[in-house]
Design a protein around this nucleic acid. Sequence first.
DNA 1: ATATTTATCGTTAGCGCTAACATAATCTGT
DNA 2: ACAGATTATGTTAGCGCTAACGATAAATAT
Lengths: 348, 348
Amino acid sequence: MARSQQMGRGATIVDVAKRAGVSSMTVSRVINGRSGVSAETRAVVEEAIKALAYTPNVAARNLVNSTELRIGIIYSNASAAFMSEFLTGVFEEASSRGARLMLLKGEGGRPPPVEAIEDLVASGLSGALLAPPLGEAPDVLRVLRDAGCAMAAVGAYQSPGTICVRIDDRAASYQMTRLLLDLGHRQLGFILGNPNQAASAERMAGFYAAVRETGGVEVQVVQGDFTYASGLAAAEHLLALPKRPTAIFASNDDMAAAVVSVAHRRHLDVPSELTVAGFDDTTLANTLWPPLTTVHQPVRELAAEALSLLIAEIAAKKGKSRVPRETILDHRIVERQSTGAHLSSPPA
Amino acid sequence: MARSQQMGRGATIVDVAKRAGVSSMTVSRVINGRSGVSAETRAVVEEAIKALAYTPNVAARNLVNSTELRIGIIYSNASAAFMSEFLTGVFEEASSRGARLMLLKGEGGRPPPVEAIEDLVASGLSGALLAPPLGEAPDVLRVLRDAGCAMAAVGAYQSPGTICVRIDDRAASYQMTRLLLDLGHRQLGFILGNPNQAASAERMAGFYAAVRETGGVEVQVVQGDFTYASGLAAAEHLLALPKRPTAIFASNDDMAAAVVSVAHRRHLDVPSELTVAGFDDTTLANTLWPPLTTVHQPVRELAAEALSLLIAEIAAKKGKSRVPRETILDHRIVERQSTGAHLSSPPA
DNA sequence: ATATTTATCGTTAGCGCTAACATAATCTGT
DNA sequence: ACAGATTATGTTAGCGCTAACGATAAATAT
């Protein structure tokens, strides 16, 4: 019996070819979008593919190409909440593309040592995907670039030859600030992020943009570095000010959480006496009480998109690459319970 | 020319066979630990494998087996920090085994709906790996069991037919309590975990075991459910008590973080006026200030081991499975800065 | 008209591995 | 001692796919 169809799982390329009345090679060409197939033939084949619910067998494809796509995922253990989402996105994409992932993690929030990256590259890498903030780590970028390794970075601002996938930090920050202003707040505190990440400057720019277009706003800006500890210090400073802010916008959730903690220590209720907003929508935002109003990044999609682009880039290696250098995905403002309207006469 | 060795990436099974002076089939048998190979032949082959740094080509293997191992990873988004580690472990293991992972995530800390699981199973699953606390979710277990799907659960206590991989919660809890007692604390508070997870009872048992063998200890136990909010309430209760505890041991880090927050609100310094200990060593433990003393679980290893056992179980499906039902990995007490010696006369 | 290019499609071979069978060598029991 | 069972190895074929080349027909050039 003609085994293919009846037994076993999915249909094979041969089944499709038979049904379309062409050779398997033609089907292969259609699948891979290769040229040299007439429009009508292509249509017939596509019809057959759909009818049989055919999906290419990645194992067979990898085997013959022998080019087993090896992608290095390089990250530091900075924000685990973020990484969980990130890895999920990457893995889903990788498994459907049949890519093999090599994870490399730095310890203590630091990038992995250069030697580790060199080893990884030496083991034969097709490309590397950088999780924030490594997309802006000079050492990492240099090693990879020297090795001629294709790169994609999530959350990074452009560096030559790297595919960047991120949200529009400035716009997000602008919108969040607008939200605060619309709630009636006119005394605003802003806690900056780590200065060596481009996103920090963008977030501040968005904040200022919203402030500038509104009259009578007083702002206090203090430097942080994205850590909880830095948020603690910044909050202590802001809340000890003679004209203390009625709303504080921190450049990430960790620092926003610290603000809440300091507020509580000073017996200030959140949000009735102090409004707090964060950025990133990590689990922390939902773990603490009150849950934080924050900016949600579509981390999973960012990661999946970055991997997808990276694979495209690798494929297009010889010809001029038609892969966009910069891709922006949509963010979302999540309003939870750490923000509230400004009360002109605060409660006793 | 005999292409194999000189060009292309790694060595193939044929290269190994040639070097060992046997057929490729014999090498295959050695690799897969199949019987029917003499000890000396096996040794020679293993020698050759090592010499050539041979690694099996997963694509080729999957292709011929056609049985592409599809493993479902089922989890809720409870603790992202945990999941990040968990996924890392699972993915590393999966990529070296050539397994294809299907992720299924529940929303809002709930298990995924039964329909979703049924769909997943229907799509052809070889086995399922359950992240905590789903290893003890009756609905999930039932659906999987009915489908005759092999299962492994991390952090769960035994349920028939499921492979459980976890740490010894009781021993860990005992050790942590001992640490507190050795620091001189005699007024202890304990915050219970969610009662529908077996680990909660184990952790309490360990706590009591340590308390019982020590004289003159007063304990206050209050119910929690592993959430930050429940920790808040529990801490408020404990710290309002007339004879308030000098040390509080929470059944997980989220609740321990809440204790720290409440302590600060009441102007109690941690650790000089109140010692706090957690459990799990999530990133939260290192994010907050002061960093928490807690019990570290080797999450990555737990996940990898569980997947490894699951794959073994699937392979041994026909014969009697020789896979252990329960596997315990080592934990570690991590002493950070939330714990300190009890001062007989507390500072003014 | 014939030679030459171009577009479309088919054939062959082989990626690295293992199931299934074939073979050779050794061990049983009576 | 010799058929039959056991153990140790080799042979053959093929998993699903695609590179490389070959074949055919149509378009263009000379």
